[in-house]
Nucleic acid binder design. Sequence first.
DNA 1: CGATAGGTTGAGTCGCATCAACCGGGGTGG
DNA 2: CCACCCCGGTTGATGCGACTCAACCTATCG
Lengths: 240, 240
Amino acid sequence: VDSFLHRKLAHFAPLTGDDRQALDARLRFVHRFGPHEDLFRHGEDPRHVNVILEGWACRYKQFEDGRRQTLALFLPGDMCDPHVFLLDRMSHSLGSLTPVTVARIPFDEISGLMDFSATLHRALLLEVLITTEVQREWTLSLGRRTSLERLAHLFCELALRLRSVGLTDRGSFDLPLTQADLADALGLSTVHVNRMLQELRATGLVEQRARRLTIYDEQGLRALAMFDPSYLHLNQIALL
Amino acid sequence: VDSFLHRKLAHFAPLTGDDRQALDARLRFVHRFGPHEDLFRHGEDPRHVNVILEGWACRYKQFEDGRRQTLALFLPGDMCDPHVFLLDRMSHSLGSLTPVTVARIPFDEISGLMDFSATLHRALLLEVLITTEVQREWTLSLGRRTSLERLAHLFCELALRLRSVGLTDRGSFDLPLTQADLADALGLSTVHVNRMLQELRATGLVEQRARRLTIYDEQGLRALAMFDPSYLHLNQIALL
DNA sequence: CGATAGGTTGAGTCGCATCAACCGGGGTGG
DNA sequence: CCACCCCGGTTGATGCGACTCAACCTATCG
């Protein structure tokens, strides 16, 4: 079976059949969550790695006064921090955005995976490195991109990441986020996200309705967002 | 010799004398840079890992139109991405802020280091994980902290990181950044940094003049910044 | 002594937040 | 079946935080 996880990791290292089997054998503990539930909370001592099999999740931090920032989006095939077990306590929370099914790999089995083959070891390392690359790009977005650019940039990133696991239909993909979810991720208010969405639609570069986003002019959207795909290190993924 | 690098890594794993020797043996290629020079630029294919021996450096990205964001600050003892060699090309640049002396470890010697001992392997992995933790906290700052909180938070972080390598004198440390450097890191304009510095000084929590920052009330500053040190995973470092 | 880098100040503007109201659709219960 | 609710989205008015532009100040250095 060719899962999202396989496709994701295959971009990082050429997995053998044995690698895939070793991987799948560790996906025994499957859990389901409804939308907007916590997979685990800040301060806990993590005992397993979450692999997103289906649905969207996020990493977030929140202040006591309610201010909340989404730090990362997790899509099908994403592993949430393969190496967290080295840290004592989580400094952030993990939450579902849509209904989500995850597999939980216990820590001792993660080490087993990394020892199993150098290829898998490398793939998991690249997973964290590239997650970090994305984190840096988000820092840049929040620091220096305007709200419209930020929104456009997120759409470019999502298009590419979803395409890399086969979840796009040409320029079009499922976008199950509410405007409030987008606001959390973009560091904006929901009201302003609403207005920027309208503005972006008005450019004609994208269409967005009924939980679906269609990109009509990917080059144009990238130019608007100053999107340079190299930070995702998915060199072989083409436009559209 | 007990270097900044030793002290830094010792927080992550208990280095043996052999580990320290293996490490030091790889610091043969020392380079010096003036202030505000590039150690290497976005798009290059990196061939070595930079270790900061002295001075401050930064990771940054910049748009064609001049907008510029500092993504990370590197202090003495910091290793700039021990695992970059897994990536094809750098998606960001590395630049000095002050005069800097760095040691460049060629990639093949990095692998040698990681194979040398499980302790070193672990220490280098923790170096990247914690760098990522810092990146996330910066994302949070840029997304949801006010400019004053951002500034205060940065000072809290710097105090703790510098203290962990022995570069503070109680609450006081060398702060060689210009207001423009701070602005790049905080996603603000230099004018606004100037005003926020004044406001922060006016609280009486800190004093700042002549390239030196003194924190008078670390608890107060942390409260203002909503600084929770757990993301740095330096559990044993005390206040002041 | 002039040049330059860093810091300071003021005025005007704009991006985005906040507050508040309202709309529309899907689900639920009476 | 209809009334209602609630969630997500939309709109307008207002205010503030931060930017821009521009001038000026100060210390350092050649």
